[in-house]
Structure formats: C-alpha cells, structure tokens
Amino acid sequence: MTKHEFEVAMTCEGCSGAVTRVLNKLGDVMFEIDLPKKLVWIESDKDVEVLMATLKKCGKDVKYNGTK
C-alpha cells in the first residue's frame, strides 16, 4: 500500500474528528492525523483523486503533498 500525505486545514479536535469520520466510511484505509501540523497520512491502494474527494467531504481545504 502507498502512503500519501495531505495537508488539511484543521484547527480543532472537531476538524480531525470530521476527517476521521469520512475516512472510516471509505473503508480499507489506514491513516494518521497530526492536528498541530495539519497533516493527514493515508495508507491505501485507492487513487489519490478518490482520497482527495473523500477528504474534501469534511468541508476543509485539502492539498496533496505526495507520497511518503
């Protein structure tokens, strides 16, 4: 599985909770959230476009930083 890094405009626990909820619905992904750095790492075989679209469902600005 590939590990992707995304920058998500999260400011609080509620934001990271929203990210957790949308990613859990995706299924078959492992992820880590670093709230202070506003980073989300997602380990998945899904396309980057699918992951981006899923993260955008939480209503935050999302930027793809590449694979890590």
Results as ranks from 00 to 15, higher is better:
Thr54Glu: 13
Thr54His: 08
Val62Ser: 01
Ser44Ile: 04
Ile33Met: 02
Glu32Val: 02
Ala18Ser: 08
Lys25Gly: 12
Leu51Ala: 06
Arg21Lys: 14
Cys58Glu: 08
Thr2Lys: 14
Asp45Tyr: 12
Glu32Ala: 11
Tyr64Cys: 07
Glu13Gln: 14
Gly27Met: 05
Leu23Lys: 01
Lys37Phe: 11
Val19Trp: 14
Ile42Leu: 09
Cys12Ser: 06
Leu35Arg: 03
Leu55Lys: 08
Val48Pro: 02
Lys63Tyr: 15
Met30Lys: 14
Asp28Glu: 15
Thr2Ile: 12
Leu23Tyr: 04
Lys56Cys: 00
Cys12Leu: 03
Cys12Pro: 12
Lys56Glu: 14
Glu49Thr: 12
Asp61Gln: 13
Gly27Ile: 04
Pro36Lys: 10
Asp47Gln: 15
Thr11Ser: 01
Met10Ile: 01
Ala53Ile: 04
Leu51Glu: 07
Cys58Phe: 00
Lys56Ser: 07
Trp41Lys: 13
Cys15Gln: 08
Lys60Met: 13
Met10Gly: 01
Asp47Ala: 15
Asp45His: 13
Asp28Asn: 15
Val8Ser: 00
Ala9Phe: 06
Asn24Asp: 15
Val62Cys: 01
Ala18Lys: 04
Glu43Phe: 02
Leu35His: 08
Thr11Phe: 13
Met1Lys: 13
Lys38Pro: 08
Arg21Ser: 12
Asp61Ala: 14
Val29Gly: 00
Glu7Ile: 01
Gly66Arg: 12
Cys15Leu: 05
Ala9Glu: 14
Gly59Ile: 05
Leu35Thr: 08
Asp45Phe: 09
Glu7Tyr: 14
Arg21Leu: 07
Tyr64Gly: 04
Tyr64Pro: 07
Leu55Val: 02
Asn24Cys: 03
Cys15Met: 06
His4Ser: 14
Leu39Pro: 01
Ala9Val: 02
Ile42Pro: 04
Leu23His: 02
Val40Phe: 00
Ile42His: 10
Gly14Val: 08
His4Phe: 14
Ala53Asp: 14
Val29Ala: 05
Asn65Leu: 15
Val50Gln: 11
Asp45Glu: 10
Thr67Gln: 13
Gly17Asp: 05
Met30His: 13
Cys12Tyr: 10
Met1Trp: 13
Val50Ser: 00
Met52Ala: 03
Met10Trp: 07
Asp47Ser: 15
Leu35Tyr: 10
Glu13Arg: 13
Leu23Pro: 03
Arg21Cys: 03
Lys3Trp: 00
Asp28Met: 05
Asp28Val: 02
Gly27Cys: 08
Lys68Glu: 10
Asp34Cys: 00
Cys58His: 05
Val48Tyr: 05
Lys60Val: 10
Val62Trp: 15
Glu13Cys: 12
Val50Ile: 10
Val48Trp: 03
Ile42Trp: 11
Tyr64Asp: 11
Phe6Val: 00
Ala18Thr: 01
Val8Trp: 04
Ser44Asn: 06
Ala18Val: 04
Tyr64Leu: 06
Arg21Thr: 10
Leu51Phe: 07
Asp61Pro: 10
Cys15Phe: 15
Lys60Trp: 12
Lys37Asn: 15
Leu39Cys: 01
Tyr64Val: 08
Ser16Leu: 01
Leu39Phe: 04
Asp45Asn: 15
Thr54Gln: 11
Cys15Ile: 07
Asn65Arg: 14
Val8Gln: 03
Lys38Asn: 11
Ala18His: 09
Ile33Pro: 13
His4Trp: 12
Asp47Arg: 13
Arg21Glu: 11
Ile33Lys: 00
Cys12Gln: 05
